[in-house]
Nucleic acid binder design. Structure first.
Lengths: 141, 141
DNA sequence: ACGACGAGTTGCACAATACAACCTTCGGAG
DNA sequence: CTCCGAAGGTTGTATTGTGCAACTCGTCGT
């Protein structure tokens, strides 16, 4: 089997994975869709960021982020730091409720993964992780 | 490093990949959105399959596949084999036009992948492919 | 003080999806 | 053979995530 054939296989499998992630409701915790989850977790990881930072990170339109964040706020999962009601540079931070939901979702995701790779040896899993990391680390342009 | 730590790493890397795919531009080739591309390539790879097979592969509703395939057919990229106009088990196959578009898009994707994995050995690439396939094949429930 | 710019919101449109209801055909069991 | 149930496929409807465009609001430099 030559390299091109192998590469085609990688391509196919990545596509299947990507398609599945894109589709499906992908509720991690009935109340926390994938998009909301990733934004929440990024706000948490960054220890407080602005909407525009999320837009840059995910290469999304500002309006999309605005709506998603508005939803998270309405549900009490994040707060807008500035009491300055409007304008520039409002810091977002995760509330206690948001943190709790995030933790639950992370646990659910880990459980799902554990089920999928139950039959894998530690070495196989570690190799998979290393390969994915290496792939993701490659320059995108 | 214990298994939980490794699993967390896998989770993180899969999430990074998924987020990027979500935010990425839809089109690989003007006129061929990501969704259409992946279905077309699956039809091609399977050497002719039914709509329900695509629904199973991507865990999509049959109605979604029906609309997507309808679109591909309208654009002359696939044909429905059975002259039996309606009903059960119609085989889908890729037309010459579909194949041509697919080849162009595949070449672009392969070039991108080749760049990313340029430094990988054939063995590493093959192992990556096998692990992804195994992951994707795992039962989702 | 004013004008340019950066951050955010809102209106509108669209693509992809799920769910439910329905239709069509095939393969058996009686 | 007839009828019925299961499997494949389509259509109606609602929802979600998204981009683009136009707008508002606040800040900063001159």
């Amino acid at each position: 089997m030559d390299r091109e054939t192998i590469a085609a296989g990688v391509q196919r499998e990545l596509t299947v994975f990507a398609r599945r992630v894109r589709g499906l409701p992908e509720r991690l915790h009935r109340e926390l869709p994938f998009v909301a989850y990733s934004m929440l977790s990024s706000i948490s990881a960054a220890g407080g960021c602005r909407s525009v930072d999320l837009a840059d990170l995910y290469r999304l339109d500002r309006s999309t982020v605005s709506r998603q964040v508005g939803d998270l706020e309405r549900r009490g999962l994040v707060t807008r730091a500035g009491d300055a009601s409007r304008g520039r540079g409002r810091r977002l931070s995760v509330t206690a409720a948001g943190r709790a939901l995030l933790d639950e979702a992370a646990a659910a995701r880990q459980a799902e993964l554990a089920r999928r790779v139950a039959a894998w040896s530690d070495e196989e899993l570690a190799a998979f992780e290393a390969a994915l990391r290496r792939y993701n680390a490659a320059e995108p342009d």
